[in-house]
Each structure stands twice: as structure tokens, then as C-alpha cells.
Design a protein around this nucleic acid. Structure first.
Lengths: 181, 181
DNA sequence: TGGCATATACTCAAATTTGTATAGCCAAAA
DNA sequence: TTTTGGCTATACAAATTTGAGTATATGCCA
């Protein structure tokens, strides 16, 4: 929960903005690949943080008969909280939650063939990820809304993917030699 | 939520067991480092899954006047669900949720000095992680309750940590050269 | 100009998660 | 013998998250 708050505060701090636009920003950053951003929770977080005084409503824009846009802006308290959360995220070590490691835990419940198939499947996904990296590092750089250092985020993902590929290769070998599971 | 279910089903499938013992098993696997296992949610998941017919109560053991242990066992439906979830986790690519990447997103809000300090701090954590790896790969192997392939999980974590260390070194250099943020 | 896919924008009930509360047992120190 | 700290074991209210639901606008093609 502190993650979604930090993300929202960091977006609102730049300029007053409404929920849907925040969602688009997060999509633009591919945040769904490294954060829990169910889009419903943007709105919960916005009202909760408003209630707590971290944000305030700047204006509501009625466009036709659609739901009115609610534009939020950050308060001084909100700025302080952003700083606090940012430092917390930089200085504390919070584990990364990886569903694949849950799968690994029960490796021994798959047959040899299923396991090899799954490992190769995973290899595919990881390579697909990597091939996106070049695309993004080029394309996103020219996009004005995307800070240049967002590229570093993508590079880190690529590094994780490479590491996992190496690991998978070694596991495949062990499975083929009958040492695993 | 599917992750905690898979974990619990995979533990209960081996033998009838009560909630607290499940918790200890998860601690033994260092599950808090790669899964969301707030220990309260073990009990929620157990009763929910019982209600859904995936588990059933095998017995309740009253020891003195303490809360009675409720021992659960898996049902046929539960076995089927375990298989389904296991395959889902092996064959689908689910993103890993990484709070550090949220921090990276707002790298530019830290001063150069704060950033370098934070990066070095992170380096420390990662090296500490790595130094645990040798310990665990040795120690856990002799533990009967810990399947041998759990070691692979630890090796994967080490691979991620190494990858991140390399990434951090490159970022530090860029920051020192004034190219970031 | 009408129709269809896609985009805009938020709401809310239901499901899930969290963390604290409760409360007794046990071993060792004082 | 009493105190103290830590382990055993679950319950549950409160907070959070999810995702389907609602309803309108807009662009595009024929």
C-alpha cells in the first residue's frame, strides 16, 4: 500500500492531475510489471489520502454527462509524506514478491517432462522481455513524459531476466542429468 | 492470493497439519523473502478453503486451555486445485513485484549525495544476502524437512542479487559522471 | 449518418489482508 | 518459588484491494 501511495504522490507532486491520467502515466511506465496497480485502488488511495490531508481537490471538471473528473493537487503534508516514503523505499530493504519462486518450491510435483516444458516456456517469456528492452530504451527516451532515468528501471528488469535465464539453463542441465528434482 | 493458496495446499498435501505448523514451514523456507505471507492470512485461507471443500478438518487437538489446534487435511478437490495452481504458476508469466523499482522511478527526487548513499546502502543489503547463500545451501541441505530443490530457490535469489549489484555499480558510475539522474 | 470498437472516468460491494489481541504453556534465572 | 521472556495457537475488527459495473464520448469506416 505504501507503494501505490508513493507512486501517486510522485505523480501528483509534478502537477494537479485526475485519477484516470495517473493510471495512464503508470501504464506508460509499465508499472504493472513491478508494482501492484489494480486501477481501482488508485481511486481508493486518492480519496483516502485526501481525507488524510496529503492531497486536496483542485477542481472537478464536468465534461458532458460523463463522470466528472476530479483533479487533485498535493499539500505540504503530502510533500512531506512523499519524501518520507521515498527515503523509506530507498533505504530499507523490502523483499520482492515473485510468484515464480512459489512455483519453484513445488518443482518436485511436476514430472520430468512437464518440468522441462515449463522451464523452456519460461525461457521464452524471458527472451521476449529482453527483446522489448531495446525497443523501450530507444522509444521511451524520445517521449517527453518519460523521465530519462526510467530507462534504468528497464535495464534492471533486463538484468534480472538475464540472471534468471542463466539459472534456468543450469536447472535444465541438472534435470536432464537426473539430479533434480 | 493464489500464491498463499498454492503454498498451503502444497504443504497440507504432504500430511495433515495445523496452521501454526504451516507458518513454521514457511519460515523455514524463508518464504517471507519472495511471497506475501502475513501469518494472519494462513488462517483465513485455511477456513476459506475448507468452506470451499479444498480442505477438511481432520481433528482438533485441545492441549491444556490454549486455543485448540485445528488439523487440516486435503481433499480430492484440493488436490486438483493444487495441480491447477501449480501449472498456472509454472506456465504463466506473472510479474514480480519489486518495491525497489518504485524507488528507482523517483530517483530524480533525491540529491546526488542521498542517491549515492542509498545505492551504497543497497549494495550492503545485497552482499549480506549473498553471504547467507553459502550458509543456507549447506545448512538447509541437511535438514530433513527442506526438500533438496529448495536450494535452487536460494540460488535464484543469489542470481538476482548479483545482477542487481552489477546494475548498481553501473548506476553509481553514471551518477558520479553526472549522467544521472 | 449510423454503427461499432475503443477510450474516458469513476463507483462500490465483495473479497482479501493485516496486525493486534488474547491467553495459556514452559524453561531458566533470580 | 516467583518472575520473566519467549513460544504456541488462533480469532477477528479494521483497513485495503479487486474488478466488475455503469455510463458517456469519440473516432473511424462504410
Amino acid at each position: 500500500m505504501t507503494a501505490i501511495r508513493l507512486l501517486i504522490l510522485g505523480i501528483v507532486i509534478k502537477e494537479p492531475i485526475h485519477g484516470y491520467e495517473i493510471r495512464r502515466q503508470l501504464e506508460n511506465w509499465n508499472a504493472e510489471q513491478w508494482a501492484n496497480v489494480a486501477y481501482g485502488s488508485i481511486y481508493s488511495a486518492l480519496s483516502k489520502m485526501t481525507q488524510e490531508g496529503l492531497l486536496q481537490v483542485a477542481q472537478t471538471e464536468q465534461i458532458g454527462a460523463r463522470p466528472a473528473r476530479v483533479v487533485y493537487e498535493i499539500t505540504e503534508i503530502g510533500r512531506a509524506e512523499f519524501d518520507r516514503l521515498l527515503h523509506e523505499h530507498w533505504l530499507e530493504y523490502k523483499p520482492m514478491i515473485n510468484p515464480f519462486q512459489v512455483a519453484i518450491t513445488f518443482m518436485n510435483h511436476l514430472s520430468r517432462d512437464e518440468l522441462l516444458k515449463a522451464l523452456r516456456q519460461r525461457t521464452h517469456f524471458l527472451k521476449a522481455q529482453l527483446s522489448n528492452v531495446d525497443f523501450y530504451t530507444d522509444a521511451k527516451l524520445s517521449d517527453v513524459d518519460t523521465p530519462r532515468h526510467i530507462r534504468e528501471n528497464i535495464r534492471l528488469m533486463a538484468a534480472y531476466a538475464e540472471a534468471e535465464l542463466t539459472w534456468i539453463r543450469s536447472v535444465i542441465e541438472q534435470v536432464e542429468r537426473g539430479e533434480l528434482p
